[in-house]
Design a protein around this nucleic acid. Sequence first.
RNA 1: GUGAGUGUAGCUCAGCUGGUUAGAGCACUGGAUUGUGGCUCCAGUGGUCGAGGGUUCGAAUCCCUUCACUCACCCCA
Length: 420
Amino acid sequence: MFSAIKGFHDILPGEVEKWQFVEAKARKIFEDFGFSEIKIPIAEKTELFTRSIGEATDIIEKEMYTFPDRKGELITLRPEATASIGRAYIEHRLYENNRVAKLYCIGPMFRYERPQKGRYRQFHQINVEALGTVDPIIDAEIIAMLNHFLIETNINGLELQINSLGCRDCRPGYREKLKKFLEDKSADLCIDCRRRICANPLRTFDCKNNACQEITSLAPKVLEYICPNCAENFEDVKRNLEQLGVSYRINPQLVRGLDYYTRTTFEVVTDKLGAQNAVAAGGRYDGLIQELGGPDIPGLGFAIGLERLIPLIPKDKCFSAPLYLFIAPIGNAAKDRALQLANRFRIMGIKTEIGYEGKSLKSQMRWANKLNTKFVMIIGDEELASGRVIFRDMESQKQEEVEIEKIIEEVKSRKRNNLK
RNA sequence: GUGAGUGUAGCUCAGCUGGUUAGAGCACUGGAUUGUGGCUCCAGUGGUCGAGGGUUCGAAUCCCUUCACUCACCCCA
């Protein structure tokens, strides 16, 4: 017997309705905010990711699904979407006609990690990117949009945290200061943090070790070292968020894992998910497009982790359209007729189901009940002969014999009047 | 990659320190109700007890190996 490969999951009916709900909400809201959907390949040349994400990150070092294609070229299943969107943006010169490109993208990502709660090898993100402006208005706009989206999905208990990481001018200086601080204390740091000092000192802030946290809480904070431009920029973002009524908490220890982030960063966390608590996260990446070989164009964006968002959504908010009609045939001749009738209803846009396999009427009624249908149409030899079928209202338990054509007309007119 | 926990029916789980025919609830099928759902009652279908090896008169139970899943570290959405 086959099972899905480790860390890959099926999303079954009953669960998939939440996904549809979330995706529909995202599309509607993002379009209202002026974003357009972009569909991009799930695989890219490996170098695109090694260039953008950062050589020292775990994603590049050990988490990518990389393989040679038939000609020996290295291909990678995308571990994140921003690099691909950046590539598409440059390749199709989306910067030429539009001053600002506002894009979103929904789809799977792949990282070869050990699966655990909220972390899978194939996982799904909704990505949002705005390329082409440094205006801090758009930082606030995007965060406000994310905030609005999360409110609309009926999730509570989320916290929005923001920070600024500085720009390419001021970040290196801060990085060195932090590095020096950590080197002095390295004897008291855990083994992972000692490794981080060189690889990515900012990430020591994310360590869960108590001793490390005590030390990093005393470490110099980015916000104290960013240049006046970055500081002013951050003030603009905060002011705009306040004016939009978006509540946030400044977390001076908030850093991002990917190398390309600059200036504004943000993260939405929950306490209901266990260790993987970031539901959505993002920030600015002003150097990325140039790094990928494009013009020096700034950008920012965020990603929502759907496997993390969806468990938080109350189940009763999402359901598929209710079944309107269940046709229960008795006998083979009735089955053919049932199929023809069902087809007519379905073409009219009426959600209709049929009983299969010549099951007993009792069994079909049970099934119809389970499907929560509004009406059941019973059609057997007698009905076939008379041209009148039994039409049963499941809720009121009342049923009547009606001519087939009459029912079709009746349903049609109800649909016209939007009575379902 | 490291650590811990769990694998018994389609699902959720019982099964005591090894003891002979492996259980319950839900679900499914049939009947009570000859062609009528939800409630009730009765009956039935369904299991190589994750896999392999070992100890033993005897293993779902103890030991070893292995696989899978889960959670945590790491990493990150």
